[in-house]
Protein backbone atom coordinates (compact mmCIF):
# COMPACT_ATOMS: atom_id res chain seq x y z
CA UNK A 1 0.00 0.00 0.00
CA UNK A 2 2.74 2.43 0.94
CA UNK A 3 4.55 1.56 -2.30
CA UNK A 4 1.43 2.56 -4.16
CA UNK A 5 1.56 5.90 -2.37
CA UNK A 6 5.18 6.52 -3.42
CA UNK A 7 4.06 6.04 -6.99
CA UNK A 8 0.88 8.10 -6.97
CA UNK A 9 2.06 11.05 -4.93
CA UNK A 10 4.14 12.44 -7.79
CA UNK A 11 1.29 12.37 -10.27
CA UNK A 12 -1.10 14.76 -8.60
CA UNK A 13 -0.55 15.53 -4.94
CA UNK A 14 3.14 16.44 -5.19
CA UNK A 15 3.32 17.01 -8.93
CA UNK A 16 6.90 18.27 -9.39
CA UNK A 17 5.90 20.75 -12.02
CA UNK A 18 2.54 22.19 -11.03
CA UNK A 19 2.69 21.88 -7.25
CA UNK A 20 6.38 22.11 -6.39
CA UNK A 21 7.09 24.45 -9.32
CA UNK A 22 10.31 22.76 -10.41
CA UNK A 23 11.66 22.23 -13.91
CA UNK A 24 10.18 25.39 -15.36
CA UNK A 25 12.65 25.78 -18.23
CA UNK A 26 11.68 22.68 -20.24
CA UNK A 27 8.03 23.24 -19.36
CA UNK A 28 8.14 26.58 -21.12
CA UNK A 29 10.56 25.82 -23.89
CA UNK A 30 9.50 22.59 -25.55
CA UNK A 31 5.74 22.74 -25.05
CA UNK A 32 4.99 24.34 -28.40
CA UNK A 33 3.79 20.91 -29.58
CA UNK A 34 2.14 18.09 -27.67
CA UNK A 35 4.42 15.49 -29.26
CA UNK A 36 7.54 17.34 -28.13
CA UNK A 37 6.10 17.57 -24.63
CA UNK A 38 5.49 13.83 -24.59
CA UNK A 39 9.00 13.07 -25.86
CA UNK A 40 10.60 15.37 -23.32
CA UNK A 41 8.46 14.04 -20.48
CA UNK A 42 9.24 10.41 -21.23
CA UNK A 43 12.97 11.08 -21.67
CA UNK A 44 13.01 12.88 -18.34
CA UNK A 45 11.10 10.01 -16.72
CA UNK A 46 13.64 7.54 -18.04
CA UNK A 47 16.58 9.55 -16.71
CA UNK A 48 14.79 10.11 -13.41
CA UNK A 49 14.08 6.41 -12.84
CA UNK A 50 17.59 5.33 -13.84
CA UNK A 51 19.37 7.95 -11.78
CA UNK A 52 17.12 7.19 -8.80
CA UNK A 53 18.07 3.50 -9.05
CA UNK A 54 21.79 4.17 -9.27
CA UNK A 55 21.82 6.83 -6.59
CA UNK A 56 19.83 4.77 -4.13
CA UNK A 57 22.18 1.84 -4.76
CA UNK A 58 25.25 4.01 -4.25
CA UNK A 59 23.93 6.06 -1.35
CA UNK A 60 26.36 4.48 1.10
CA UNK A 61 29.34 4.80 -1.25
CA UNK A 62 29.05 8.46 -2.27
CA UNK A 63 30.74 10.74 0.28
CA UNK A 64 28.44 13.41 1.61
CA UNK A 65 30.68 16.34 0.66
CA UNK A 66 30.83 15.55 -3.05
CA UNK A 67 27.34 14.18 -3.42
CA UNK A 68 25.96 16.90 -5.69
CA UNK A 69 28.73 16.62 -8.32
CA UNK A 70 28.43 12.83 -8.16
CA UNK A 71 24.68 12.99 -8.73
CA UNK A 72 25.15 15.36 -11.63
CA UNK A 73 27.67 13.04 -13.30
CA UNK A 74 25.35 10.03 -12.87
CA UNK A 75 22.45 12.02 -14.32
CA UNK A 76 24.58 13.36 -17.19
CA UNK A 77 25.56 9.79 -18.06
CA UNK A 78 21.95 8.72 -18.47
CA UNK A 79 21.13 11.89 -20.38
CA UNK A 80 23.90 11.10 -22.86
CA UNK A 81 22.53 7.57 -23.16
CA UNK A 82 18.96 8.65 -23.86
CA UNK A 83 20.04 11.30 -26.36
CA UNK A 84 22.10 8.73 -28.29
CA UNK A 85 19.13 6.35 -28.27
CA UNK A 86 16.72 9.05 -29.43
CA UNK A 87 19.14 10.20 -32.11
CA UNK A 88 19.00 6.80 -33.75
CA UNK A 89 15.47 5.69 -32.84
CA UNK A 90 13.47 8.91 -33.17
CA UNK A 91 15.57 11.49 -35.03
CA UNK A 92 12.68 13.93 -35.51
CA UNK A 93 12.04 14.15 -31.75
CA UNK A 94 15.79 14.43 -31.19
CA UNK A 95 15.96 17.36 -33.59
CA UNK A 96 12.97 19.22 -32.22
CA UNK A 97 14.06 18.86 -28.59
CA UNK A 98 17.57 19.91 -29.54
CA UNK A 99 19.57 21.43 -26.75
CA UNK A 100 16.89 20.78 -24.16
CA UNK A 101 17.60 17.09 -24.31
CA UNK A 102 21.11 17.72 -22.97
CA UNK A 103 19.70 20.17 -20.50
CA UNK A 104 17.75 17.38 -18.76
CA UNK A 105 21.05 17.09 -16.86
CA UNK A 106 20.37 20.28 -14.97
CA UNK A 107 16.63 19.74 -14.57
CA UNK A 108 16.11 20.41 -10.90
CA UNK A 109 13.37 17.78 -10.59
CA UNK A 110 15.91 15.00 -11.13
CA UNK A 111 18.51 16.45 -8.80
CA UNK A 112 15.77 17.20 -6.31
CA UNK A 113 14.48 13.63 -6.23
CA UNK A 114 18.05 12.35 -5.94
CA UNK A 115 18.73 14.61 -3.02
CA UNK A 116 15.40 14.31 -1.26
CA UNK A 117 14.33 10.77 -1.98
CA UNK A 118 16.74 8.38 -3.68
CA UNK A 119 19.65 9.15 -1.36
CA UNK A 120 17.52 8.23 1.65
CA UNK A 121 15.44 5.32 0.43
CA UNK A 122 15.75 1.77 -0.85
CA UNK A 123 15.76 0.87 -4.53
CA UNK A 124 12.13 -0.18 -5.02
CA UNK A 125 10.54 2.93 -3.48
CA UNK A 126 13.04 5.04 -5.44
CA UNK A 127 11.98 3.44 -8.71
CA UNK A 128 8.30 4.04 -7.92
CA UNK A 129 9.01 7.58 -6.81
CA UNK A 130 10.94 8.28 -10.01
CA UNK A 131 8.19 6.76 -12.16
CA UNK A 132 5.47 8.73 -10.40
CA UNK A 133 7.31 12.02 -10.48
CA UNK A 134 8.31 11.45 -14.11
CA UNK A 135 4.74 10.67 -15.13
CA UNK A 136 3.48 13.70 -13.22
CA UNK A 137 6.00 15.85 -15.08
CA UNK A 138 5.01 14.24 -18.40
CA UNK A 139 1.33 14.87 -17.74
CA UNK A 140 1.81 18.52 -16.92
CA UNK A 141 4.08 19.01 -19.95
CA UNK A 142 1.44 17.32 -22.08
CA UNK A 143 -1.26 19.57 -20.64
CA UNK A 144 0.65 22.78 -21.33
CA UNK A 145 1.79 21.46 -24.71
CA UNK A 146 -1.74 20.53 -25.75
CA UNK A 147 -3.17 23.91 -24.79
CA UNK A 148 -0.43 25.72 -26.65
CA UNK A 149 -0.59 23.56 -29.76
CA UNK A 150 -4.39 23.65 -30.01
CA UNK A 151 -4.61 27.41 -29.51
CA UNK A 152 -1.38 28.33 -31.27
CA UNK A 153 -1.53 26.19 -34.39
CA UNK A 154 -5.01 24.66 -34.36
CA UNK A 155 -3.59 21.16 -34.18
CA UNK A 156 -3.12 18.41 -31.63
CA UNK A 157 -0.30 15.91 -32.13
CA UNK A 158 -0.18 17.25 -35.67
CA UNK A 159 -3.87 16.45 -36.32
CA UNK A 160 -5.78 19.44 -37.63
CA UNK A 161 -8.54 20.31 -35.14
CA UNK A 162 -9.61 23.85 -35.89
CA UNK A 163 -11.23 24.52 -39.26
CA UNK A 164 -8.84 25.98 -41.83
CA UNK A 165 -10.57 29.36 -42.05
CA UNK A 166 -9.87 30.08 -38.39
CA UNK A 167 -6.59 31.89 -38.03
CA UNK A 168 -4.64 30.16 -35.20
CA UNK A 169 -3.40 32.43 -32.41
CA UNK A 170 0.29 32.24 -33.15
CA UNK A 171 0.99 34.15 -29.95
CA UNK A 172 0.51 30.93 -28.00
CA UNK A 173 3.46 29.18 -29.59
CA UNK A 174 5.63 32.25 -29.11
CA UNK A 175 7.61 32.52 -25.85
CA UNK A 176 5.13 35.02 -24.41
CA UNK A 177 2.31 32.51 -24.83
CA UNK A 178 4.35 29.88 -23.00
CA UNK A 179 4.66 32.03 -19.90
CA UNK A 180 0.98 32.92 -20.08
CA UNK A 181 -0.37 29.39 -20.51
CA UNK A 182 1.82 28.04 -17.73
CA UNK A 183 0.66 30.86 -15.46
CA UNK A 184 -2.98 30.12 -16.18
CA UNK A 185 -2.53 26.36 -15.75
CA UNK A 186 -0.83 26.84 -12.37
CA UNK A 187 -3.59 29.23 -11.34
CA UNK A 188 -6.23 26.64 -12.25
CA UNK A 189 -4.33 23.96 -10.35
CA UNK A 190 -4.10 26.30 -7.35
CA UNK A 191 -7.82 26.89 -7.48
CA UNK A 192 -8.83 23.25 -7.94
CA UNK A 193 -6.49 21.91 -5.29
CA UNK A 194 -7.03 24.88 -3.02
CA UNK A 195 -3.30 25.41 -2.62
CA UNK A 196 -1.64 28.30 -0.87
CA UNK A 197 0.01 30.89 -3.14
CA UNK A 198 3.58 29.85 -3.84
CA UNK A 199 6.48 31.63 -5.47
CA UNK A 200 9.07 30.05 -7.66
CA UNK A 201 12.19 30.30 -5.58
CA UNK A 202 14.59 28.80 -3.15
CA UNK A 203 12.17 27.27 -0.71
CA UNK A 204 11.34 24.53 -3.17
CA UNK A 205 14.70 24.38 -4.90
CA UNK A 206 16.59 21.18 -4.11
CA UNK A 207 19.88 23.05 -4.15
CA UNK A 208 18.84 25.53 -1.51
CA UNK A 209 20.75 23.62 1.12
CA UNK A 210 23.99 23.54 -0.82
CA UNK A 211 23.88 27.24 -1.62
CA UNK A 212 23.15 28.23 1.96
CA UNK A 213 19.89 29.86 0.96
CA UNK A 214 21.55 32.31 -1.39
CA UNK A 215 18.27 33.70 -2.60
CA UNK A 216 16.92 34.21 0.88
CA UNK A 217 18.21 37.76 0.38
CA UNK A 218 14.78 38.26 -1.16
CA UNK A 219 12.31 39.68 1.34
CA UNK A 220 9.73 36.89 1.08
CA UNK A 221 11.98 34.34 2.70
CA UNK A 222 13.32 36.46 5.53
CA UNK A 223 12.21 33.83 7.97
CA UNK A 224 14.27 31.23 6.22
CA UNK A 225 17.34 33.45 6.22
CA UNK A 226 17.07 33.77 9.95
CA UNK A 227 16.90 30.01 10.22
CA UNK A 228 19.98 29.50 8.13
CA UNK A 229 22.08 32.10 9.86
Amino acid sequence: MSYMKEFTKGIIKENPNMVTLLGMCPTLAITTMASNALGMGLSTTFVLVCSNIVISLLKKVIPDTVRLPSYIVIIAGFVTFISLVLQSAAPEIYDSLGMFLSLITVNCIILGRAEMFASKNKVLPSILDGLGMGLGFTLSLLLVGSVREILGSGQWFGIQLAPEFLEPMTLFILPAGGFFVLGVVIAVVNRLMNLKPREIGCHNCPNAESCHGACSVTPSSDKKEGGNA
Partner: peptide
Protein backbone atom coordinates in the same frame (compact mmCIF):
# COMPACT_ATOMS: atom_id res chain seq x y z
CA UNK B 1 -7.12 37.20 -6.96
CA UNK B 2 -6.10 34.43 -4.59
CA UNK B 3 -5.58 31.69 -7.16
CA UNK B 4 -3.31 33.94 -9.21
CA UNK B 5 -1.09 35.01 -6.32
CA UNK B 6 2.52 33.90 -6.36
CA UNK B 7 3.82 32.03 -9.36
CA UNK B 8 0.87 32.46 -11.78
CA UNK B 9 0.86 36.26 -11.76
CA UNK B 10 4.67 36.27 -11.93
CA UNK B 11 4.53 34.09 -15.03
CA UNK B 12 1.89 36.30 -16.60
CA UNK B 13 3.97 39.38 -15.94
CA UNK B 14 6.92 37.60 -17.53
CA UNK B 15 4.70 36.90 -20.52
CA UNK B 16 4.05 40.62 -20.98
CA UNK B 17 7.77 41.44 -20.67
CA UNK B 18 8.53 38.71 -23.18
CA UNK B 19 5.90 40.17 -25.49
CA UNK B 20 7.70 43.50 -25.27
CA UNK B 21 10.94 41.84 -26.32
CA UNK B 22 9.28 40.51 -29.49
Amino acid sequence: PKALRGAPITLMAASIVSLAFI
